[in-house]
Design a protein around this nucleic acid. Sequence first.
DNA 1: TTATCTTTGACTAATATTGACTATTATTAT
DNA 2: ATAATAATAGTCAATATTAGTCAAAGATAA
Lengths: 155, 155
Amino acid sequence: MQSQNISDIIEKYLKSILADAEQVEIRRSEIADLFNVVPSQINYVIKTRFTIQNGYLVESKRGGGGYIRIEKVNLVDDADVLDTLIQVIGDSITQRDAYAVVQSLYEDEVLSQREAQLILVATDRNTLGVDDHDLENSLRARIIIGILNHLRYES
Amino acid sequence: MQSQNISDIIEKYLKSILADAEQVEIRRSEIADLFNVVPSQINYVIKTRFTIQNGYLVESKRGGGGYIRIEKVNLVDDADVLDTLIQVIGDSITQRDAYAVVQSLYEDEVLSQREAQLILVATDRNTLGVDDHDLENSLRARIIIGILNHLRYES
DNA sequence: TTATCTTTGACTAATATTGACTATTATTAT
DNA sequence: ATAATAATAGTCAATATTAGTCAAAGATAA
């Protein structure tokens, strides 16, 4: 019922490969051809759906034999990744990125589904209800980081 | 014969779909065209007739392939208790009172200990980190009410 | 009459798609 | 070795495609 846009479809395609493999390595133009889009759309998909907030690391190389490699990482196992995440969030995070972070924590079984939902509600734009977007994003960052630090102590 | 304004008709149309399906996903402009109204009237119908109080959840996405999804949810048994709490909290609550509310929900087994902790972290003065106490208290109220509203139904 | 509900549309916001231009790396020719 | 060329990927801004907000105007009910 969902996934009407091509970016979502490409996202699903890549994630279906990652469901069975540690990482996926693509040639940008091949995927672009496969889905009949311009090559830069692959960058768009990666930039919006395979960020560190989503729990993915991306490496690439240009030139002959170039590639884009996407790797799924675990946020909890790797303390460095958690630190990186907190650093990336900094003092501001959008609702979209927050969703990605919470989703990742759920996938890594750090949070139950109910806990994840509660955090998303707590950081939802409409819940916070502030006009100023900068304030909204900074509040969201504080809440998410507060919770991440709490989770760290807990374990 | 009841008044059959176009908003009522659109409402019935959507609810007739929801009678057979868990959720309905629409393209705003399509429904608007179907009933010959401006697109924003769909927002009006949703805002007035598909609220969480009535047991509906609404999600949407803009841009290419955008949609509005309406889902019917089951209200939990103690929804009325939560409603009362929501009334009492109003638009402002101190950290101390929030603690009491969360504590009592934990004692009533509405929340697990871990969930309770997460909520307290999210609404902690230091987490929110705003100077203005009125703003702090109103943010805390919004967060807790958002969560209480979420707890009113099962997902 | 007056208060509330409905309808409308101009303006805003979010997300997706595209393509021109740039940057990097590998390969080939000199 | 070095320079030229080919083969990649990256960036960014313009445009397209959705949905959201808000307030004014109109309709209806109390």
